[in-house]
Simulated scan of single mutants.
Amino acid sequence: MTREAVREMLRNNPRRFGYALRRALWTHEAMALLPGPYGWNDGGCLLLAEGLVELLGREARVRAVVRGGTLYAQHFVVQEGRWHLDADGACLEGTLLRRWEEQELVPSPRTAPLRAVDISAGTPRSAEVSASVRDFLCARLPSA
């Protein structure tokens, strides 16, 4: 699938795109792209977010979920228009923040731009891995 086809799929049906993204990522082949003991939601989220930005283009932005009152990143997502994307699919910001408050027990979560947050020294970051994620998604996401 081309980058333009991926962007079009996201524009035309964000929920379908999110479902396809989740299905592609939670496979043994996709998990093998991650270094070490990481998963998409426990250490690999920044690698995924940067790969998604490469795939979606300059309109997409990496955002961090932070604990209210801090700039310490808990999770990374991609914002494309109103939609927020991660390994769980596509959702609106309110849904994302509720999930992080209710399921992950982060008090008063909010999103912040990547450039404004503190990233843990243990958070993996690799242009090579993010490019592999981009290429994998290009090959695995279904046609619009």
Rank of each mutant, 00 (worst) to 15 (best):
V78Q: 09
G36M: 02
E80N: 08
A20Y: 13
W26L: 01
D118N: 14
P35K: 09
H75T: 11
A144W: 06
H28N: 13
W26V: 05
R110I: 12
A116I: 05
R7W: 03
A73T: 03
E54P: 00
Q79W: 05
A64I: 09
R110F: 10
L71N: 14
G18Y: 06
R98N: 10
T70S: 15
Q74W: 07
V53P: 12
E29R: 15
V62G: 07
V117F: 15
G94V: 05
W83A: 08
D118R: 15
L10F: 02
W40E: 01
D42K: 14
E93M: 02
P107G: 01
W40C: 04
G39T: 14
T70N: 08
E101W: 07
R22Y: 02
L55N: 02
E8W: 05
R58N: 13
A60E: 12
A139L: 12
A32T: 01
Q103S: 11
S132C: 09
R67P: 12
W40H: 00
L47I: 13
T111N: 01
N12Y: 03
L55I: 06
P142R: 10
T111P: 00
C45N: 07
I119H: 07
V62C: 09
A131G: 07
A20H: 14
E101I: 06
P124N: 03
E80M: 13
A139I: 02
R3K: 15
L137E: 11
P109Y: 01
P142S: 12
L137N: 00
V129K: 10
E50K: 14
Q74T: 04
I119R: 09
L137W: 01
Y72G: 10
R98C: 07
L21K: 02
G36A: 05
E101T: 06
D42Q: 15
G68R: 04
A49W: 11
E29K: 15
V53C: 03
P107A: 01
R99Y: 14
P107Q: 07
L92D: 12
D88E: 15
S132F: 05
R82E: 14
N41W: 04
V117T: 09
L92P: 07
A20V: 06
L55Q: 02
D118Y: 14
R67C: 10
T123K: 12
G18H: 13
R125L: 07
A24E: 12
L92C: 04
L137D: 04
R125S: 02
R22N: 02
R11W: 00
P124G: 07
G89K: 00
G43R: 02
N41Y: 04
G44F: 08
G43M: 09
R82I: 04
A24I: 08
A112Q: 12
R125A: 01
V65G: 12
P124Q: 05
P109H: 07
M1C: 08
F17N: 04
Q74N: 11
L97C: 11
M9C: 13
A127T: 05
R23K: 15
R125P: 00
R23L: 09
